[in-house]
Amino acid sequence: MTSDDRGSSSISTDEGPRSSRSGDDVTASSRRSKRKQLPLWQETILLLGVALVLAIVIKTFFVQAFYIPSESMEPGLILNDRILIQKVSYWGDDQPERGDVVVFKDPGGWLPPSESAGPSNPVAKVMAKIGLYPTGGHLVKRVIGVAGDTIVCCDDKGRLSVNGKALDETAFVRRGDRSCDGPMVTDCKEDWTVGPIPEGHIFVMGDNRSRSADSSAKMCKPNATECVPGDEFVPVDLVVGKVFVLLWPADRFRWNTRPAPFEDVPDPSP
């Protein structure tokens, strides 16, 4: 074989594979291009579907929007404030703690019909279902006592005591025209005691103590003969989540944390 023959053979061998690879690359690229290109309307539906699923999952397990329906949580949260609650803190065996501000479903008869109805606008109803709009039938209150606790009103400064520990709530509670932090059942004219709180229940109060239809308002008044004790406690399984941020109005945006006075409350005696 001459050197010319070897050169000719070499050129012929190289050109074949290059041509073949080039054709394969074009075909594969064309297929990928066809797979990626969807009509705009299909892409829109797909994106909306993914967003809807994510919104439902987030609402169910993580975060949900609510609004403040009354003045009962002033001065910290006022009428029509938009808040977000998180549900992670109460996963598994974890339960609400003293000082938490929680959203819970109406235990029955705590809310007037107008506040239980929820949104009437069709669009708002759909948004409420996926957690993008507040729903009706819920209340927002602060946890004062948990299972086993005993609450007493009041000491010589008008303060509540939990398991013998007086709570200094001046930083976040509004007494209004009352002289104590627990006025509802006796209007601060007499002391009252509640507890031990049953297992699986909490005792809640609004921060605006003279304008809150809360657990203290559901207590039996002294010498009442037709009142059945127990309606003042909220079942833990009705708690939806813990308020963790004041979202709107924007100029009052803030993270919501547990007040320091509740950190030193001792556990109930066995």
Rank of each mutant, 00 (worst) to 15 (best):
V185G: 06
T186P: 02
T186N: 03
T186H: 08
D187S: 12
C188S: 09
C188R: 01
E190I: 14
W192C: 06
T193L: 05
P198K: 08
E199A: 11
E199Q: 10
G200Q: 05
G200N: 03
H201I: 05
H201A: 10
F203K: 01
V204I: 12
V204Q: 11
M205W: 02
M205R: 02
G206I: 07
G206T: 13
D207W: 00
N208C: 12
S210F: 12
S210N: 15
R211A: 15
D214I: 12
D214Y: 11
D214S: 07
S216R: 15
K218N: 14
K218F: 13
C220M: 12
C220P: 01
C220R: 06
K221W: 03
E226Q: 14
C227D: 15
C227Y: 04
P229L: 13
P229A: 10
G230Q: 10
D231W: 10
F233E: 07
V234H: 00
V234Q: 11
D237W: 09
V240A: 15
G241M: 07
K242C: 10
L246A: 06
L246W: 03
L247V: 07
W248L: 08
P249L: 01
P249T: 03
D251I: 04
D251N: 12
R254K: 12
R254C: 03
W255L: 14
N256F: 05
N256K: 03
T257A: 04
T257W: 00
R258I: 02
P259Y: 05
P259C: 01
F262A: 00
F262M: 02
F262I: 00
E263N: 02
D264G: 05
D264Y: 08
D264K: 04
P266G: 04
D267S: 11
